[in-house]
Design a protein around this nucleic acid. Structure first.
Lengths: 200, 200
DNA sequence: ACTTATACCGCACGATCGTTCGTTCGCTAA
DNA sequence: TTAGCGAACGAACGATCGTGCGGTATAAGT
């Protein structure tokens, strides 16, 4: 166990990061505060930030963990579905489920982060844009497969499908949450299914 | 207590508020800072906040002004269109135009504010939710008119149409901006038109 | 000319921000 | 047993936060 200490560091970081993800999903990645986080975890500010070196480094770790949560919650359950329309449908269901369960206590983390940084250039903004681009590429790829298989209209642009699904999930989640509309997510799922040609 | 010069006060406030709206559309309503705002306007912090009494009061004024901008930019140009599908189509065009011009330098203010406060209860959250509700009601009303006139499928739920349009505009704007996709807004318009076009 | 109202400023306050120290303590290796 | 590493701590730093208080310049009313 010569590497034990390194494992402890990782576990330690994980504890902090997971709590930070929960907090940031409510108050935003930019709204994260070392003092607030340290208080919540009954730690000292210096002991907490010492694991990361700086606040921005911590924010990057938090973002990475949030992306991992999203992937585990939405992508992993559907990864084995056949590419194309079948998987797109599975993604829609997993996505809506993800938005409704408590994976992110304060609503979709990536949406929150996207809005926070869409007008603020920097490393974090770049990382978020990359993550969004990767997810859009996944959607677009399955859309292209579906179109090639004749499961979606041949006139459809895969990029349009991807952007539409992303916009519906992201915007729909925010609006539903803000207006406290209990049927909102169900309506969003209907809209997403309509976007990929399903007339529920 | 003598009647003060209300117009001067309003003009003074307006100067500050308009600058604050621009700034908040970039860094968020919560990220607004009296010091930053005062520096930008070459004013003192006390002189600036003195017009509002408190920061939250200023934030409310900023939110109100942002809503007024949105109304002037999207609703006023289409208010005289005939209710129903015609006006919905005009709204889509005005909305997309609004998202693309520089009305809000940092992207749709109401979307930013919605995301900031969708998980943070309080007066500001309530005000934002009310504004979102009013706009959704406008969309829903025209959708209902369009359905009654046979311009939209009779099976469509007006509330679904309203939520779908709102989610597409809000989410699409953020994703397009974040990924710096120059054709994004055009794709979003296509999706919105599809949402109020021939369903299925 | 004198009063009055008020927009604005300078200044200071307590709190909190992110960060940097020096120190302590528990564990591991030798 | 002992030396050493690293996690965590308390304290303090300069900066900035929102918010008050007192003073001043200006403009209107009389």
């Amino acid at each position: 166990m010569a590497r034990r200490s390194a494992t402890d560091v990782a576990d330690s970081r994980t504890t902090v990061v997971e709590a930070a993800v929960d907090l940031a999903s409510v108050i935003g990645l930019e709204g994260l505060t070392i003092g607030r986080l340290a208080t919540d975890l009954h730690m000292s500010k210096s002991g907490l930030i010492g694991r990361f070196g700086s606040k921005e480094s911590m924010q990057r770790a938090v973002l990475e963990a949030a992306i991992a949560r999203f992937t585990a919650s939405v992508w992993v359950p559907v990864a084995n579905e056949p590419a194309g329309l079948r998987r797109l449908e599975a993604i829609v269901d997993a996505w809506i489920t993800h938005l409704g369960d408590g994976t992110f206590p304060g609503g979709c983390f990536l949406t929150t982060a996207s809005v926070e940084y869409d007008a603020r250039p920097g490393t974090l903004s770049d990382d978020i844009a990359k993550a969004a681009g990767r997810w859009l590429a996944v959607l677009e790829s399955d859309a292209a497969t579906a179109i090639a298989a004749g499961d979606l209209p041949s006139g459809r642009d895969p990029a349009d499908v991807a952007l539409e699904l992303y916009a519906l999930a992201s915007g729909g989640s925010v609006v539903s949450r803000l207006t406290q509309n209990p049927t909102g997510l169900g309506q969003v799922r209907g809209a997403m299914r309509r976007a990929i040609g399903q007339a529920h």
